[in-house]
Design a protein around this nucleic acid. Structure first.
Lengths: 98, 98
DNA sequence: ATTATATGCAAGTCACGACTTGCATGTCAA
DNA sequence: TTGACATGCAAGTCGTGACTTGCATATAAT
């Protein structure tokens, strides 16, 4: 799976991006705890780890290893490709409501 | 299915949005022909119709009925919610590369 | 060295979405 | 009306992704 849109399709992965937006640079354990608490998601550590792998494979998350901990950082730049692909207009030329 | 991100997850639906970006206001038959020709997708009419239903349910496509024809229009405004949710920064504050 | 901590890998189950097939509905022209 | 055209509805198959379970690896502390 190396598709930006499929990566965004899973609610758990969007919650991970939300969590990293609130506080960047969290470890896997921190993300597990916070996802369970704040977002009400009851996922196993492995499930969250797999989601982070997907996010990293599409460039939405970068990681940094320090000792036995792995820190995760959000990178929103891939999202720009969405707007470049389907420009947001002011709805004048796209509908024919006359 | 009424989820913006799941709607964007299917390549066929993204191709439909591409096609409507190129030429807005196409009918189901026109979209079937053009998807097969230009995008190389061999999908049945019903499959494309179902994809259009999904796009309409999340507000990415609006429709207009005229007689026995149904015209489809793209509406990119729902995409704005993506950027509002995860703001695109200039990568200064999101990484800790010091 | 031993133990606890933090993460990684692999195989397996299972549900949901993508797609098809078949038939039905509605509109326009002869 | 009849027939052709454009679309809609419903049920069924099938593959893939989400999640789990179990074990393995690597780092830090005692």
């Amino acid at each position: 799976m190396n598709d930006l849109f499929e990566a965004l399709a899973a609610p758990a992965r969007r919650a991970l991006l939300d969590e990293l937006t609130q506080q960047n640079g969290q470890t896997l354990f921190e993300l597990c705890a916070r996802l369970t608490m704040k977002h009400g998601l009851g996922l196993s550590r492995q499930a969250i780890s797999q989601h982070l792998d997907v996010l990293e494979s599409v460039g939405l998350v970068t990681t940094e290893r320090k000792g036995r901990c792995k820190f995760h950082y959000i990178d929103t730049r891939p999202l720009m490709s969405i707007l470049e692909r389907w420009p947001i207009t002011n709805r004048e030329e796209q509908t024919s409501e006359d």
